[in-house]
Amino acid sequence: MKSVALFAALTLTAPAAFACEPFAVGDLTIEHAWSRATIGADRPGVFYVEITNAGSADDALVGIATPAAGMPMLHETVVTDGIASMPHSMSVPVPAGQTVALAPGGYHGMLMGLVTALKEGGSFPVTLTFQRAGEVTVTVDVLSMRAEGPDCAHAGQ
């Protein structure tokens, strides 16, 4: 039964781009959740998202979970003295009144142990856990391998 639900979640084709639809929990708004298509399931997938904290208290993203991958983790790409490395991040700060982006070249979710290849045009759920606001499940759009972000009319506003 669980695998049927997973199959449905992974093959669900979005009628309109989910990435452009905001999700909310407490004072937080979560939008532009996207991932890149993968070739097969042997390489890790990626998870990018934007989180806006409209409240007056700092929060932090402390974990991600998804049925699409056995081992999703938060990472940060760090370039120090011309060397890029990708340390594990225990949490991503979401300060009061600010928008934080998990975006190419910075914080990102690394989806290790993909259950199946991520296909362009598909989508899958990711549950984000915040220190204060708690949990929220968002729908992640799978874009092309060459994508640099979702194409939303209001993106960047």
């Binding site: 890149r36 390489r43 890790p44 997938g45 990626v46 990472h75 790409t77 890029a84 990708m86 190419p104 070249g105 990102h108 690394m110 989806l111 391998m145 060459r146 994508a147 640099e148």
Partner: peptide
């Protein structure tokens, strides 16, 4: 390296562009 989820796809996307 191809197991790299962030830096390498981002750069290859730019090269492709």
């Amino acid at each position: 390296f191809t197991n790299c989820p962030d830096v390498c796809p981002t750069t290859l996307s730019e090269v492709a562009q």
